[in-house]
Design a protein around this nucleic acid. Structure first.
Lengths: 191, 191
DNA sequence: CTATATAATGAACCTAGATTCAGGTTATGG
DNA sequence: CCATAACCTGAATCTAGGTTCATTATATAG
């Protein structure tokens, strides 16, 4: 809660414990975990959860924020490396593999991706992340790595369609197919 | 309910109305629609729903069955046409486009695909549908249309990852990328 | 060390939706 | 037309999980 006042020592401690527990629980069991479960994991009463996060949604959002941050950071790092000379296609692949694997072990991110659907671009990616992606795609096309008709929207397909709940080999295979579909020489009329 | 006895006239009528309503509601609003909603749509009391379908799950399953059937039928038709000389890649694409569009306007199928996840192959596809798909893929590879390393599992990726809730243009674009990734000349090392 | 603003607690409250069942209807064989 | 098995109805029951709040505890300024 955005008060001016600083948190009392115990309150700060609990807030941290709650965030940790929420992270643990939500990642493991998805955003539908009961607040009770989070409270128990945190060693705190439900009421305390609500003191720190007025609504369950607030808590979930808080947990997700960190994960989205790391995705954006990864995108920026990839874009930087490309512009520093690294092979565009490798960075492109590397970034999406990172995102894929992050989400794979993370029911929260998974569910969020579903729920937000076409919306999450609004929030986080329509910012730093969006820019970084643009840089990646542009360079990829420029260097003849990615198909010329590749767009930013195609990147969202990567996020939105990853078979996150499938076992690793399946994910890997999907990644191969999808990436091959994005390569420069894959483009053609599908009509 | 699998009794020996035939249904009473009014019971049969209601059963039909329920199925219709359930189909309508579940397709439109997904499997989470309240039983009340279905009952109301059917012009019947909740109790009647339960008389015909002991549990909500039974009802949902019944509704889904028809849709899965149509998918399997489509697969078989495509396989037949291929073996009768039709271009493999076109039939391959056509079949998946059909499934994609079917699911797109169908919250039920969508949710089912998610929920069942890797399981639904067990049920319906591990039967006629599975065989039809095998025929399609085999012919596609044989004729040099599909990448040589294409497998049946790749087909499940088509089901599992389709961006069903995205708008039509997005779905179409995804279809293009994915299909291009499945073509014979797309294969390469991605590792 | 107190006073008191902050916090924590957890039982109680609410809502939603699935499921049940006692009691009233109705199709239909004879 | 009757008897009665099949049916239907819908209020009541149950459960689950989010949210509240009166009560009790505790950090910390002075």
């Amino acid at each position: 809660m955005p008060d001016g006042r600083p948190l009392r020592a115990d309150a700060a401690r609990n807030r941290a414990k709650i965030l940790e527990a929420a992270n643990r629980q939500i990642i493991a069991r998805g955003p539908e975990v009961p607040m009770e479960a989070i409270a128990e994991d945190a060693g705190v009463a439900v009421g305390t959860l609500y003191r720190h996060f007025p609504t369950k949604d607030d808590l979930v959002t808080a947990v997700l924020h960190a994960h989205f941050e790391s995705m954006v950071a990864a995108a920026e790092a990839a874009a930087d490396r490309i512009e520093a000379g690294a092979p565009a296609i490798d960075e492109f692949a590397g970034f999406f593999r990172f995102v894929l694997e992050l989400a794979a072990g993370n029911m929260a991110v998974k569910a969020a991706a579903r729920a937000l659907g076409a919306d999450w671009e609004e929030d986080l990616l329509r910012g730093r992340g969006l820019q970084a992606l643009e840089r990646i795609v542009a360079a990829g096309i420029d260097r003849g790595d990615l198909r010329p008709d590749m767009t930013l929207d195609d990147c969202f397909l990567f996020f939105a369609t990853a078979p996150i709940d499938q076992p690793a080999p399946v994910r890997e295979r999907w990644f191969t197919l999808m990436l091959d579909g994005c390569r420069a020489d894959a483009a053609r009329r599908t009509g």
